[in-house]
Design a protein around this nucleic acid. Structure first.
Length: 435
RNA sequence: GGCCCCAUCGUCUAGUGGCCUAGGACACUACCCUCUCACGGUAGGGACACGGGUUCGACUCCCGUUGGGGCUACCA
């Protein structure tokens, strides 16, 4: 029988990176097995559930490329079903009303155990675990079902075959298995996957930094990179391969190879991986992705032309790790006025010969009919020769004069893309200011 | 506190009794490339938590210790 799995977030917050990983393992397993992947919204907590969070979770999953099967299932719309099941339990004497609430009679002694796909048999001695032996509230006084009850009802009715969820649910499982038995439902295969940890090895949370998928989107991570990185947290294909696309992940993913140890999230490695994916993009696609970041920065009108922008993007493709870095890295191509960094000035603009060089260079660039990289390099190099300056003696100071910085893409490409007007003006200004 | 889970380089991991003087990746260091940065390339440092067993032989199996984490709601 084909497997049926589900991701069941509650809309009480944005999609957490750890939840996204849980969703991913469910998704990959379903697609690998040719089964079904469902999305169920656990919104039984009326106070904390919010529409904006629901929208956020749904759009984040779509952005990551995890398409689900069928319609969304909302627990808030299934109260009647839960009620009927609770009534049945009460009619059978397996549950009882306590005021407006309903409690399920939990077994009081012996052991509750279940088989976990990764951990093997997990056993609980009821005598040693007082909170487990307490009768479980399945309906709250406010008329809504509790989490552990709704989950069992839904998983059974949706025909879920594999419950793949975080390790933090291990202690919920012994509360749920007696319910399956009392209801006569077949138990799914449980698979508790390790949590994603912060640097201090506690469960990753806000205090460790960005945790929501939305934040990663805004920082300029690509969904492909996030999927790839997340898939390697607690799983590996076993052949040292690190860069794996979604289709290949689906093909290779094996639930049984998932590890049981928590994994510390490394934003450094994610950035590296994102850089790998940025480098694979075609220039038009990367340009399209970068555009929103430029506009957000107010550089939309500073884009000379699509062709010019694509040439610029080409220069930066190997220097970008996150899309959001682009406006900073390429700032001097967009701003009219540049600021000179102090270190750059003190390191490269001290030579008195520079004033003359800048004046000459400005005149040279001004005179060029063709302003492409090749022409600029040829003419520039012969000017250096005339001036008696080496490449380094000329290029480093000129870079500072033109960009205000010590770091830029290749110098002659930079001059070309800056354009004659900006280049000449900046050189003249530098000649004055630092002469 | 009780219960449960976990334990290979700083981090992610390979490893299912001999192939391991433990492999790869990120990060780090050095060098090469070079107009800077980045990319790329080469090299280097860096781990089987500890103690008992089992076995001809343990990173691999068992037990204990230590350490870390999770759960202990009419939240999910």
């Amino acid at each position: 029988m084909a497997c049926r799995v589900r991701f069941a977030p509650s809309p009480t917050g944005y999609l957490h990176i750890g939840s996204a990983r849980t969703a991913l393992f469910n998704y990959l397993w379903a697609r690998h097995e040719g089964g079904k992947f469902f999305l169920r919204i656990e919104d039984t907590d009326k106070e904390r559930s919010k529409k904006e969070f629901l929208d956020e979770i749904v759009s984040s999953l779509k952005w990551l490329g995890m398409d689900w099967d069928g319609e969304l299932v909302f627990q808030s719309e299934r109260t009647a079903e839960y009620r009927a099941i609770a009534d049945r339990l009460m009619a059978e004497g397996k549950a009882y009303a306590e005021g407006q609430a309903v409690r399920f009679r939990m077994p009081k002694e012996g052991k509750v155990s279940f088989e976990d796909l990764l951990h093997g048999r997990i056993e609980f001695d009821l005598g040693q675990h007082p909170s487990l032996a307490e009768d479980l509230v399945i309906f709250k006084s406010d008329g809504s079902p509790t989490y552990n009850f709704a989950v069992v009802c839904d998983d059974a009715q949706m025909g879920i075959t594999h419950v793949i969820r975080g390790d933090d649910h291990i202690m919920n499982t012994p509360k749920q298995t007696p319910l399956y038995e009392a209801l006569g439902y077949q138990k799914p295969i449980f698979c508790h996957i390790p949590l994603i940890l912060g640097p201090d090895r506690s469960r990753m949370s806000k205090r460790h930094g960005a945790t929501s998928i939305r934040e990663y989107l805004e920082a300029g991570f690509l969904p492909e990179a996030i999927i790839n990185y997340l898939s390697l947290l607690g799983w590996s294909p076993g052949n040292n391969q690190e860069l794996i696309g979604k289709e290949e992940l689906i093909q290779k993913f094996d639930l049984k190879r998932v590890l049981t140890t928590g994994a510390v999230f490394s934003s450094e490695k994610l950035e590296w991986m994102n850089g790998q994916y940025v480098r694979k993009l075609t220039i038009p696609v990367l340009t399209d992705l970068l555009l929103p970041y430029l506009e957000k920065r107010g550089y939309g009108t500073a884009v000379i032309s699509r062709e010019w922008l694509e040439r610029l993007v080409m220069l930066f493709q190997e220097r970008i790790f996150r899309l959001a870095q682009f406006p900073d890295l390429a700032q001097f191509f967009f701003d009219e006025e540049i600021e000179y960094s102090e270190e750059a000035v003190s390191e490269f603009l001290k030579d008195p010969r520079l004033q003359n060089a800048f004046v000459k260079y400005a005149a040279l660039l001004e005179s060029l009919e063709v302003f492409d990289t090749k022409t600029i390099e040829e003419k520039s190099r012969s000017l250096m020769k005339d001036l008696g300056l080496t490449g380094k003696e000329f290029i480093h100071p000129s870079r500072v004069a033109l960009t205000g910085r010590t770091v830029s893409p290749g110098f002659f490409d930079t001059v070309s893309l800056l354009g004659k007007k900006k280049a000449v003006r900046r050189l003249q200004k530098a000649a004055k200011v630092f002469g």
